[in-house]
Design a binder for these strands. Structure first.
Lengths: 148, 148
DNA sequence: CCTAATTGATATGAGACATAGCAATGTTGA
DNA sequence: TCAACATTGCTATGTCTCATATCAATTAGG
């Protein structure tokens, strides 16, 4: 008797792994946010930077990088891009660093990004009606700070 | 009076965003796991594949991809690599697909990966002593399944 | 039987990361 | 003061994950 190979649902012993669940959940949310931010023509990182500069006018590139866990080298093209598109302004504070601030266009974009992120979060919050979100956020913060 | 630019701790209005927390938490755990798996010379995806094949001998490449959310095109080099290193065996079941199984070397590696992942998870579980892990996992599953 | 779907594969590009090194500048402590 | 040292922005480069488009062979279904 031949065994035709029927499409199988695999037994998945890693679906219960915390790291794996985090990875998948993060990917889903990031994809959703990325799609939503398409309306402003910005990627999640870029939106995040606008929000952070908006809340910290005069901050410098390396401070942003530290706050976001992005290496100096990788901040360069991000800030350059946002500046070239007239979202950000740089003014020298040092011989080596620049105070960053939002241009009017940048502030407008920041506001839209903030609204989009609110709606994005609300959509997922609806899914998590039965979950203690305060505890969830606390747990994620703990994990993010690492076990050292 | 001059304002010297002192290293600042930025006010961070996005540190409370669920998506952002997920992203950071996931990055931290993945980095930790990646480091731990360095001892076997495997990356997290590869370890995951070994575990999944171990639990589902005879499964095929595209089933693995579906279970892990990895596109067919991206499975190709992964499976090819693990096969080339003699972790996996392919035997034809079809004119087009192959049943995958662990070689003895693959089974040995799978066991080590499993142990490493246990220790890895235990390390973070210690951090989350005050957290309802069952609820945490449920929440992450919900998020991963998306809001559609 | 013929159309549609599936499988593995190739090629290719985007994006998030990492490291190493460099020149200019700032900070320090002996 | 001034010689180490650290920081900043930057370039170059490489890896890894993920995406799309396309293909040929094979299989499944109406």
């Amino acid at each position: 008797m031949e065994k035709p190979h029927v499409p199988k649902e695999l037994h998945d012993p890693i679906a219960s792994r915390l790291g794996y669940l985090l990875r998948r959940a993060s990917a889903t949310m990031m994809a959703d946010l990325g799609e939503a931010l398409g309306a402003v023509g910005l990627r999640p990182v870029e939106g995040t930077i606008l929000i952070l500069v908006g809340a910290n006018p005069g901050c410098i590139q390396s401070e942003l990088g530290r706050a976001l866990g992005i290496k100096r080298a990788n901040m360069v093209p991000l800030i350059a891009g946002l500046t070239a598109q007239n979202y950000l302004e740089k003014s020298p504070v040092d011989g080596r660093s620049f105070a960053l601030s939002l241009t009017p266009r940048g502030e407008e974009a920041r506001a839209r990004v903030d609204g989009i992120m609110d709606a994005h979060e609300a959509g997922f919050a609806r899914l998590l009606a039965d979950v203690d979100q305060q505890q969830l956020r606390a747990a994620l913060s703990l994990i993010a700070s690492g076990r050292d």
